[in-house]
Design a protein around this nucleic acid. Structure first.
Length: 841
RNA sequence: GGGGACGUGGCGGAACGGCAGACGCGGAGGUCUCAAACACCUCUGGGGGAAACCCCGUGUGGGUUCGACUCCCACCGUCCCCACCA
């Protein structure tokens, strides 16, 4: 008798198997999404539930790194699972291809950014395909494609029409190295997030998007409409920085426009003993004009302007400032208080001016001490002498003192009372302040979408008409930054005619922040090649919001806030039904190696290509998810990745050793006993576990380990020869097949090969298995017996044994009886089918 | 200064108030081999014991509970976010 032929080769060779299945998926368009808007084709909306699964699109630098592999593998697992659950799945891919690195490379090498970017995209696409991601490649987009940025410009114009895009002068962050302005969000600790150079403040006229108009809605909708990690929500809340307070107007003694301040402590108004303007405050110049203090104040303001944002932000720095020689009137006391200029007051928060209350604010106290200004107590804690002098600012609760009509009130009462008083006299009101600033989108660089407006000497700013879009980025010879975009030197681009009057006019030469591009790309996927609109309402409303968004925590503020803003604006414009872009968000942890983030400069990068070549894409996909909890930062291990390949090989040998024939049905419960029954039970348990771990918990590493347990159990049984009868063979075949099916989302190539060898059809279309309850319920259970909560013994009993019987059994156990002997059992805690706890005294 | 997350074997981690350490890496021993690699098997938190077993153990100290890795409080440590924000 000879052994039956194996249904798979002895050894698994990933390369041919992986390219085979990738070719199959490509050829049959296995992961093509419908519906997607296409020119002239009316789409039909499926009546199945939908799942829009999206990972943050990559920036096409040279190659993808392990972080990308993890990100896209997670999305792929979710997409495969949802598809096999019978949902209509949308899982697209694109490239965030505008941006500085491509431009800087162009400066270095002379290769135009468009060329370098196209090459990088081709390379990344090939890498993504080699990993076998289930992506609808027909919907692929690149944000630097004129057919994409045409619609970025179109959306900018809709914002302009709604008054949400405006050009104005403001103190802005300027990066002297990159020679461009930056959004507030792109300045980290006073430095440019790209190049790390200290950022300067400059007074410039720039384009802003009025995201502050949406501050409250961005805050409110977080509570209602999204299921996001608490951490990210907190970060966004902090960033928006809502604070309730009041606006108080101070009259200027000796004439001049009254100056408003924002304060969160209007209750302390009686204690406002001086007044401070930010050095950039427009009133500064007027107040000191022609006065003896003018020279000194101007010098101070100029010095402040020269200081970097990082220097000015330094909390420990001594509080400097100069007196203007002028006074404003405290509205409640009627007293004149001196006006100073100090750089600890910032122009871009509140009104750029503050009432200083040294008795109850740390900074104002420090300033008062440094410059010999009076300190008045206006709040005293319960039971303390109101006359007691202040050695330090008091910021706690208490009652008002030295405060005229507010005396005796609590802090909260005083806030409303003083606000009413001010309101009646037109001197102030309760307001809400936000830390969030408007989004500065102008960039003086080349590789971005041109802002589609024209400057006409007659008509001013004139939007480019829709039918003249896109405003195409012209070719230039020199990409070096010069303080304005390189396209400003292209005469044919700049010189144009005014769309309104037809006279000569100049084009805007600033390009848009690339975060504008990525604020709406998830909408464009639904109509990637549509030439008549950025997207179609019916289709975009079918898919939006994204059901599962996956990406790095580093985008917790910038991208995620901007995208939310965009969707709200488009909703208000009637272009979109959705009010939030991403219903559910998952933020993945970073991959470290040798204790540091993988990076080229540290030389600790592991190339995905190398792992794919050596161990196969499936082993890599398994490993990046098996490493640990997907949300945590995890250390890469060169050895552990090989463990996943060993696991694949183990499963390969197991399946290869089965007989030829079709797929097995789940064996009937009654036909099984012993190891065969236990194996099918384990298979059903694995189904339940993997389904929950992928479906709800985002716990991929435990999903994989439960399949490993199943495979280990099967392998062990085979080695012991316990599945050699008919029932055993049926159980083994079913369990092996189940392991293959469950592992498919993680390792699609090798499982497809095994499934085919088992006689199955396309595994990506195979319905997701459901656990059979009759196998999950057990006839006998292990009951744990504790004495005073301490484990003493355990017992096998029939499921559903009554409490009283369990207790009797427990008390009689040989390890339990001595522990309770001679003691009084004061309580018997029973958890049916699980545990007995005897409490003794 | 404000906010948040996390502390479990040699390592990554599991345990969603009920058997701590699943799964994997690493390590030790063994089978196979002329030998090695691969593969397979056994063991692998600490201490005691010939063994059956016993004791200790989830950063530290308290608390809640019949019962705490899990919940609460404080502290220590690590990491992240925000920060002269009025």
């Amino acid at each position: 008798m000879s052994a039956p032929p194996r249904i798979l080769p002895e050894r698994y060779d990933p390369a041919p198997v992986e390219s085979k299945w990738q070719a199959v998926w490509d050829a049959e368009g296995a992961f093509r999404a419908e519906p997607v808007s296409r020119d002239g084709v009316a789409a039909e909306l499926p009546d199945r539930p939908k799942a829009y699964v999206l990972e943050m699109l990559p920036y096409p630098s040279g190659e993808i790194h392990m972080g990308h592999v993890k990100n896209y593998t997670m999305g792929d697992v979710v997409a495969h699972h949802r598809r096999r659950m019978g949902m209509a799945v949308f899982h697209p891919m694109g490239y965030d291809s505008f941006g500085l690195p491509a431009e800087n490379a162009a400066i270095r090498t002379g290769v135009p950014p468009a060329e370098g970017t196209a090459r990088n995209i081709a390379r990344i696409r090939q890498q993504l395909k080699a990993l076998g991601f289930a992506i609808d490649w027909d919907t692929e987009i690149a944000t630097s494609d004129p057919e994409y940025y045409r619609w970025t410009q179109w959306l900018f114009l809709r914002m302009y029409e709604r008054g949400l895009a405006e050009r104005r002068e403001a103190a802005v962050n300027w990066c002297p190295h990159d020679q461009t302005v930056l959004a507030n969000e792109q300045v980290i600790d006073g430095r440019c997030e790209r190049c790390g150079h200290a950022v300067e403040l400059r007074q410039l006229t720039q384009w802003f998007l009025r995201i502050t108009d949406y501050a409250q809605r961005l805050l409110d909708d977080m509570d209602e409409l999204v299921d996001w990690p608490e951490r990210v929500l907190t970060m966004q809340r902090n960033w928006i920085g809502r604070s309730e307070g009041a606006r108080v107007v101070f009259a200027v003694e000796g004439g001049g426009d009254p100056i408003p301040v924002f304060t969160t402590r209007p209750d302390t108004l009686f204690g406002a003993t001086f007044f401070i303007l930010a050095p950039e405050h427009p009133a500064v110049v007027h107040l000191v004009e022609g006065r003896p203090e003018e020279a000194e104040v101007r010098e101070y303001a100029a010095a402040a302007a020269r200081a970097s944002a990082a220097e000015r932000g330094e909390t420990e720095r001594p509080k400097t400032g100069v007196f203007t020689g002028r006074h404003v009137v405290n509205p409640v006391t009627g007293d004149p208080i001196p006006v100073w200029v100090a750089d600890y007051v910032l122009m871009d928060y509140g009104t750029g001016a503050i009432m200083a209350v040294p008795g109850h604010d740390e900074r104002d106290f420090a300033f008062a001490r440094a410059h010999g200004l009076p300190v008045t107590r206006v709040i005293a804690p319960e039971g303390e002498n109101p006359a007691a002098p202040l050695d330090e600012p008091y910021t706690g609760p208490g009652r008002l003192v030295n405060s005229g009509f507010l005396n005796g009130l609590t802090v909260d009462e005083a806030k409303t009372t003083v606000a009413e008083w001010l309101c009646e006299r037109g001197l102030g009101e309760l307001t809400v302040g936000y830390r969030l600033r408007d989004w500065l989108i102008s960039r003086q660089r080349y590789w971005g979408a041109p802002i589609p407006v024209v400057h006409c000497p007659v008509d001013g700013v004139v939007p480019v008409p829709d039918d003249q879009l896109p405003v195409v980025l012209p070719h230039v010879d020199d990409y070096a930054p010069k303080g304005q975009s390189p396209i400003a030197s292209v005469a044919e681009f700049v010189n144009t005619t005014c769309p309104k009057c037809g006279g000569p006019a100049r084009r805007e030469t600033d390009t848009m922040d690339t975060f504008v591009d990525s604020s709406w790309y998830f909408l464009r996927y639904t109509a990637p090649h549509l030439t008549t609109a950025p997207f179609e309402r019916e289709i975009v409303d079918y898919w939006l919001p994204v059901d599962q968004y996956i990406g790095g925590i580093e985008h917790a503020i910038l991208h995620l806030l901007y995208a939310r803003f965009f969707v709200k604006v488009l909703h208000d414009a009637g272009l979109l039904g959705a009010r939030e872009p991403f219903a559910r968000l998952f933020t993945q942890g970073m991959i470290y190696r040798d204790g540091a983030k993988m990076s080229k400069s540290k030389g600790n990068v592991v190339s995905p290509d190398e792992i794919v070549a050596r161990l196969g894409a499936d082993a890599l996909r398994l490993y990046v998810l098996f490493m640990g909890p997907a949300a945590e930062d995890i250390e890469w291990s060169d050895r552990a990745v090989e463990g996943q390949r060993r696991f694949i090989d183990r499963l390969w040998r197991l399946v290869g050793g089965l007989e030829a024939g079709g797929l097995a049905a789940r064996p009937a419960r009654e036909a099984l006993e012993g190891p065969a029954l236990e194996l099918v039970r384990a298979a059903e348990a694995a189904i339940a576990k993997v389904s929950e771990d992928i479906g709800e918990r985002f716990s991929f590493h435990t999903a994989i380990s439960s399949v490993q347990e199943l495979v280990n159990l099967a392998t062990k049984g085979v080695a012991e020869g316990v599945f050699d009868d008919d029932a055993g063979r049926a159980a083994l075949r079913y369990a092996s097949q189940t392991a293959v099916s469950l592992l498919f989302p993680f390792a699609p190539h090798v499982t497809s090969e095994m499934w085919e060898a088992l006689g199955g059809g396309p595994l990506w279309r195979e319905p997701w298995p459901e656990a059979a309850p009759e196998f999950l319920a057990r006839e006998t259970v292990t009951v744990v017996v504790q004495v005073n909560g301490k484990l003493r013994d355990r017992a096998e009993v029939a499921a559903g044994t009554p409490d009283a019987d369990l207790v009797a059994l427990a008390r009689a156990l040989s390890k339990v009886a001595p522990a309770i002997e001679g003691k009084q059992v004061v309580r018997e805690v029973v958890v049916p089918d699980r545990l007995v706890n005897l409490v003794v005294k």
